[in-house]
Computed example of a mutant assay.
Amino acid sequence: MKIAIIGGSGFVGTKLLERLYKSGLYELINLDKAESLMFPAITLNCNVLDKESLSKGLAGFDLVILLAAEHRDDVSPVSLYYDVNVQGMRNTLEAMEANGIKRLIFTSSVAVYGLDKDNPDESFPADPFNHYGKSKWEAEQVLQEWYKTHADWNINVVRPTVIFGEGNRGNVFNLLNQIASGKFMMVGDGKNQKSMSYVGNVIAFIEFLVKERVAGYHVFNYVDKPDFTTNDLVYHTGEILDKKIPTTHIPYWIGMLGGYGFDVLAFLSRKKLAISSVRVKKFCAVTKYDSKKAMSSGFVPPYAMEEGLRRMLKEEFGK
């Protein structure tokens, strides 16, 4: 099978390419505007906003995995979310059609549901609270409309929750780094549950879809269970690293006030700061999602949640 990965130079893409390459079952290409440190020989410089280069790059392939996205909390201007995530979807679909490709796996996000929802499953109404979630939902709507006139296509949408793992430098890494350093300050009571996904399981699920979901339109939340609270993360980090982790709790309203202060400072300095009101709000929110559909599909995660956390902590902070 010939698989084209769009946006495979990043964290998840690199891990996915590594898994698929080692299997020896696939012919692979990575289309990305960024260089790939691990897979330069199969990487073609390509921007998802350039439909012509996308069409050339996809020639001769059987399946597309679309990972490319603007996803940081502080993207500026905000129009980039919609340019890359929504128009990029349109360009990808048109480039696929031009090449006769009818299979797509798209990584969306649980951000389409919004914050503090009651364990939403795939049927839960979309209610995104930020531009990232809104643009991902708009991209899904583009897909839904496309499928109405392309019913012979096979489309799989994966909505992962926050992904962590070795080599990640996102929000989970930043949180665990603060905890492991002993400089962590808990905003709120720490009882809010955090659905998370270990990268080794996410890429295994994507390969499962490549092999097993070859017809129809499917949407899956992806979450590894159990859902840890922030207090659980502090406890497990201390246990795995054999450290006593001191924690100071501050009220939510004080944390948000500080976040707004950093928003003002970022605006005045024109710099991207590690703390913002959005990040404080996300940190304190309940982000728990239902993954029964994925876990009853026949897929078996290769790693337990605790093992994924242990692997990351040992790799990043265990020295």
Rank of each mutant, 00 (worst) to 15 (best):
A4S: 12
I6Y: 08
I6W: 06
G13V: 04
G13K: 02
L16I: 04
R19M: 10
A34C: 10
P40K: 11
A41T: 03
N47M: 02
K56W: 02
L67H: 09
Y82F: 14
D83P: 11
M89P: 05
R90I: 00
G100E: 02
G100N: 02
R103H: 08
L115I: 09
K117G: 01
N119F: 10
S123D: 05
F124S: 14
Y132M: 12
G133S: 11
E140G: 01
Q141G: 01
W153Y: 13
P160E: 14
N168G: 13
R169I: 08
G170K: 12
F173W: 14
Q178K: 12
G182T: 14
M185R: 14
M186W: 04
V187G: 09
N201D: 12
N201C: 14
F208C: 08
L209N: 02
A215G: 07
F220K: 00
K225N: 15
T229Y: 12
D232S: 02
L233T: 04
E239Q: 14
P246S: 02
H249Q: 14
L257P: 00
G258H: 07
V264F: 15
R270E: 00
S276P: 00
R279W: 01
F283P: 00
D290L: 03
S291C: 13
K292C: 05
A294Q: 03
A294W: 02
V300G: 07
P302E: 13
M305I: 08
E307F: 12
L309K: 07
E316A: 11
